[in-house]
């Protein structure tokens, strides 16, 4: 079953549309909300893992596009600036999903984007501003 991690950005006009409900009921998709920031006053952002049959998934995403929701893959939203990173590892214990992996031989870190839920915990922890999240 295909699975996608997406960042959904929707304008104020769509904020009151129950999109999660529609994706589940109308398109038979499995929806897991990883992170959300929605308010009536501004545009909403939702990080979602959606899985389902390919056809259903395509239809569901079409529905989102049609109502004006911008969709981009999650990976694009985490930027690890390797040239600023010193591999100090101070961010490592703060990552709730163990997406920052330490090679204990080399004592260097790497980012496992599949595990990252873009929670942002590493951002204030990084002394060198080596992580950016566009959320």
């Amino acid at each position: 079953m295909p699975k996608k991690r997406l960042v959904l950005t929707f304008p104020q006009t769509v904020v009151e549309e129950p999109i999660t409900y529609r994706l589940i009921k109308d398109y038979d998709l499995v929806v897991n909300i990883l992170r959300a920031r929605i308010s009536r006053e501004e545009e909403g952002r939702l990080i979602m893992e959606i899985s389902g049959e390919k056809e259903a998934l395509d239809k569901g995403l079409n529905y989102l596009k049609k109502i004006g929701v911008a969709i981009q893959p999650l990976a694009k939203d985490v930027r690890w600036l390797e040239d600023r990173c010193t591999h100090c590892t101070v961010c490592v214990p703060l990552c709730p999903t163990e997406a920052i992996v330490v090679d204990r031989e080399r004592m260097e870190i790497s980012l496992d984007k599949d595990r990252c839920i873009v929670c942002g915990a590493c951002i204030p922890a990084c002394p060198y501003k080596a992580v950016e999240i566009l959320f």
Partner: peptide
């Protein structure tokens, strides 16, 4: 400390370093 986990008061606690061993090396 460098293993990534230590025990403090019977609890397993994840470790992080401010000093970069990679850069020191």
């Amino acid at each position: 400390l460098k293993s990534g986990k230590i025990a403090v008061q019977g609890k397993e606690v994840p470790t992080g370093s401010l000093s970069s061993y990679a850069k020191a090396r």
